Amino acid sequence: MPADAAGPTFADLRRRPPARSPRAWRFAGARAASRAGALLSDGLRIGYAEGFDSGPFMAHAYVNRPSGRTTLGRAIDRRLLARPTCVAFRDIRALAELAVLEAIDHSQATRPVVADLAAGPAPYLLHALAARPAARAVLGDVNEATLVAAARAADELGVGGRVSCSRADAFDRGALAALAPRPEVVVELGLYGIYHDDERIEQHFLDLAELVAAGQIVFNVQTCNPEIEHIARVWRNAAGQRCVWRLRPVEQILGYAAAAGYRPRSIMADRHGIYRVVRLVREGG
């Protein structure tokens, strides 16, 4: 279903329900239970400490190994990891790795470079590098600790010599212009849901075309999510604020891409239909 077609709209999610309403009481109870669970569940603890949209939480969801204090803590963690959103995280990791492999295979460069400036732990990209020895990667993120973890993971996979890491903001025009070596493929996962400004994302595609001129872009977009209100009213983001994510129809992002000169080559969805993973190619490329 298209974004905001059912359930609360984005504007609804940004507003708090009336304090005396049953919805407010219900989510207050859910927040209290979730906070209490964080005393035992490693996943909830990481989510509230680092953000449920952070690299450390994504890494925990990817591993999919329930952990925590006591049997009860591990049971709470198992329930968290079985939520449709966390299942979708793992699905799109696999789909993103497939899309990156396809992008590398379709690159005309002898030693293709893949850049991800909002990389997080970047397991999809690191595993793709392990499978394609000629490829290299440039990783960036605003979280220094996440970059350290990604570099360590690259070394463990034996691809550290083909990975460079630097602290960077994916929307920073200066960072895009300074990318070196120049990437043939740009990867952006999880970026468009946590940034709410449509104009910023539209401009970002134009910046990618002008400043990077990559032949291919791999991205994902959250199009619908039955848990979107729970996430907004119970979870916290990396800034310690309410975790309000914006749903967008994939057609909206494809429109921004088309204006920048890119067209879709493949579109894939997770098993719950929460996300779309898209590989774009540049017109004429």
Rank of each mutant, 00 (worst) to 15 (best):
A3T: 07
A3W: 04
A5S: 14
A6W: 13
G7T: 14
P8T: 14
A11K: 02
D12Y: 09
L13D: 04
R15L: 03
P18R: 01
A19V: 14
W25A: 11
W25C: 02
R26E: 04
F27N: 03
A28H: 08
S34C: 06
L39K: 00
L40Y: 01
D42N: 12
L44A: 10
L44P: 00
G47S: 03
E50G: 01
E50F: 09
D53H: 14
M58N: 08
M58H: 04
A59L: 13
Y62H: 13
Y62T: 06
V63G: 01
N64Q: 09
R65H: 02
R65W: 00
G68Y: 09
R69N: 06
R69F: 13
R69I: 15
L72Y: 07
R79T: 14
L80A: 03
L81F: 05
L81A: 03
A82I: 12
A82P: 11
R83S: 07
R83A: 05
T85K: 04
C86F: 15
A88K: 08
R90M: 00
D91F: 09
D91K: 01
I92G: 01
I92P: 02
L95A: 09
L95G: 00
E97S: 02
L98T: 15
L98E: 10
V100Y: 06
A103F: 15
I104N: 03
D105W: 02
D105I: 07
Q108N: 01
A109Y: 02
A109S: 14
T110F: 02
R111W: 11
R111S: 11
P112T: 15
L117I: 13
A119V: 13
P123C: 06
P133T: 08
A134V: 09
A137V: 05
E144K: 08
A145L: 11
L147F: 04
L147I: 11
A149P: 01
A151P: 05
A153D: 15
G158M: 11
V159L: 00
G160T: 06
R162S: 13
S164Q: 09
S164K: 10
S166C: 07
R167H: 05
A168E: 10
A168I: 11
A170M: 14
A170G: 04
R173I: 01
G174A: 14
A175Y: 10
R182M: 05
E188N: 06
G190W: 03
Y195I: 14
R200H: 02
F205Y: 13
L208R: 13
G215W: 04
I217Q: 01
N220G: 10
C224R: 07
N225E: 15
E227D: 08
E229S: 06
H230K: 07
I231C: 08
V234P: 11
W235R: 00
R236A: 00
R236V: 06
A238S: 15
A239I: 03
G240P: 09
Q241R: 09
R248M: 12
V250G: 00
E251A: 12
E251I: 05
I253F: 10
G255P: 00
A257M: 09
A259S: 12
A259Y: 04
A259E: 15
A259L: 15
A260D: 12
R263W: 11
P264A: 08
I267R: 08
D270R: 01
D270Q: 10
D270W: 08
G273P: 03
R276Y: 12
V278I: 15
R282W: 09
G285R: 04
G285C: 02
